[in-house]
Structures are given as C-alpha cells and as structure tokens.
Nucleic acid binder design. Structure first.
Lengths: 148, 148
DNA sequence: AAAGAAGTAACTATTGAAATTACAACGGAT
DNA sequence: ATCCGTTGTAATTTCAATAGTTACTTCTTT
C-alpha cells in the first residue's frame, strides 16, 4: 500500500506556483508538462485543493493563488485535501468479526487507541512541514544551480 | 488510501493464538470463523508471517507458535510482514518529472527527507506496541467480561 | 463574439484487495 | 503404510481505486 501520487503531485504544484507564479501564468498545461502527466489529472487535483480552501483557481484567464500565507499551509492540509480516507482512519478493520468469539468481539476496541496513536504520529509529523518550507528549499536549490 | 486489512487481521490472529493457543488447536478454519473471512485469506497471511520469521506453522496437525517472546514482536514487525511496500517508501512519487523544469528536476530530492521523516514517525510509533501488550489488553478485557 | 483555460463527464487500462474453489503436500494417529 | 485433517498454493472472479485520455461545457478576459 502506498499513499497516492496525488499527494506528491499536489506538493509539486505548489512548488511550481511559488516558483513561477509571478513570472508565468501557471496553467494546468504548464503543470502537466513539469510533472509529466495529463492536464486533466492536474485539474482534478486543483479541484480538490480548491474544495479544501487552500487555493483559488481563475477560470478563463488561468492562474492559481493560495488563499493564505504559505507558512500556514502544512503538508497535512495538502494530504487531507487530496487523499480523503474512509471514516478518517488510516487503518482498515475487517468488517464483521465473530461476536461469539471473545477475541472477535473485543479486538476492535482493543486496537483502536493504538492505531489512532500511530495515525496521529504520522499526521503530527506532516503538520511540521509547510509550503513555505518547500518554497524556501526550492529557492535555495535553484540558487545553487545557477551559481555553478 | 487505507492500509490493508491484512494488518489488523494479523493482529487478530496473534490475539487468538495467545488467548486460545493452550486450550484449542488454532487452525485457519478456527481463525477464519473468529475473523469472519475465508480460511485461505488466513493461510496467506500466516505464510507472510512465517516468511518474516515471526511464527512457525505446523502442517498436518495444525497449530501456530510465535518464534520469539511476545514482547519482542512489535506492531511494526507485523506491518512489515503483511504490507510490503514498493521500494520501501510509503509515498508514491510521480515517475518522470520534466528534467528541463527547475522544479521538476529537483522536487524529488527536496521532498525525500521530509517524506522519510513522516514515514519514520509512523513506524517508530508502531514499534512502541508489542504482541505482549495486545495479549495483556485482551486478557484484561476478557477478565472484566467474565466478572459481570 | 472569439479565444484561452478550467470544470467535468465518460470511458479505458492497470493494479491490488478480497473472496472462493480446487487440489497437492505434509504429518500425526491408527 | 494408510488415512485424515490441515496447510500451501494456483487459478479464477469480483470489486474498487488509480491513472490516463478524449471530448465537451462553462467561464472570463479581450
């Protein structure tokens, strides 16, 4: 099991917007070319980011603008926007354990706390990284590239 | 995206073995009934746990025995055994970003550290919980049930 | 009104999970 | 040595999600 590439694509999108947004018009065609995929894939992800309130997308003219400071958009926000999971749980319980078995009727309750803690550990780490960090990191890499 | 139910099923299996192993012969049929699935599903998961060196499975007679003390089998061991992920990464990068785009050719390097840290946070939390914890928790729940 | 771009429906291909049937391989009990 | 219960595993089916593509509609600026 792997987390969908929508997550890394969304981060790639933000990085392009941050880096090129002032200079070029960043359209779904432009992004599709940088990411090497189909423009419709990009538009669908843009739609998810828009519905989550992270960006505005201009129709007609094109162009993407974050709705709040980059330091206030975390990797967790992006993850939640593009990878909604069923009933909010990262883990998948087998549906109907046997209620006549002592283990079967109690395993769910027993595991819940622990699985929640594991999921929370991942999500908390995701909250540590922001689009601002991403932007700075990319600027620094590109500056180094240009100096060689 | 959700982590496969094989993980929670494997934990359920361990819990049954710990709870009933001395009393009954815990077969794939027995487990399938407690978990409410097909015996072949169970056997495939047993095969993964066996290949990972966590249990021995007796053919012919049936019966499952952990290969080491329950306190030395963590949730992480179980997770790795039943949910092998491609190239070890929880995250899925889009394959071929455009090398002519400054963002495209650098995004992978920029994200790697951060994604690794997120994955590690999850795995480290998984390492905190052992099959021994699971066993004790289940004993305690069943004892409470019996006292009412 | 025209042009450019996003939004979106419809379809296909591919993959993985889960379930099921069938049978071969094994091992203890008689 | 054979029988029987059990595991190991291959083959098949169903279902859902991802990813990609085409085609068309909707919107906005010029």
């Amino acid at each position: 099991m792997q987390i969908s590439s929508r997550f890394t694509i969304a981060l790639h999108i933000f990085s392009c917007v941050d880096t090129f947004g002032d200079e070029y018009k960043v359209t779904s065609d432009f992004l599709a070319s940088s990411i090497n995929t189909n423009p419709v894939i990009i538009r669908r992800i843009l739609g998810q980011l828009r519905k989550a309130g992270l960006i505005n997308v201009a129709r007609g003219t094109g162009g993407i603008t974050p709705t709040r400071p980059l330091s206030e958009i975390t990797f967790y926000d992006v993850y939640k926007a593009v990878d909604p999971i069923e009933r909010g749980s990262l883990f998948h319980f087998h549906e109907n354990p046997n209620p006549e078995c002592p283990v079967g009727r109690n395993i769910h309750n027993l595991l819940n706390d622990k699985l929640d803690a594991i999921q929370k550990a991942m999500e908390d780490e995701m909250r540590k990284y922001t689009i601002e960090d991403l932007h700075e990191g990319m600027e620094s890499i590109i500056a180094k590239e240009e100096s060689t």
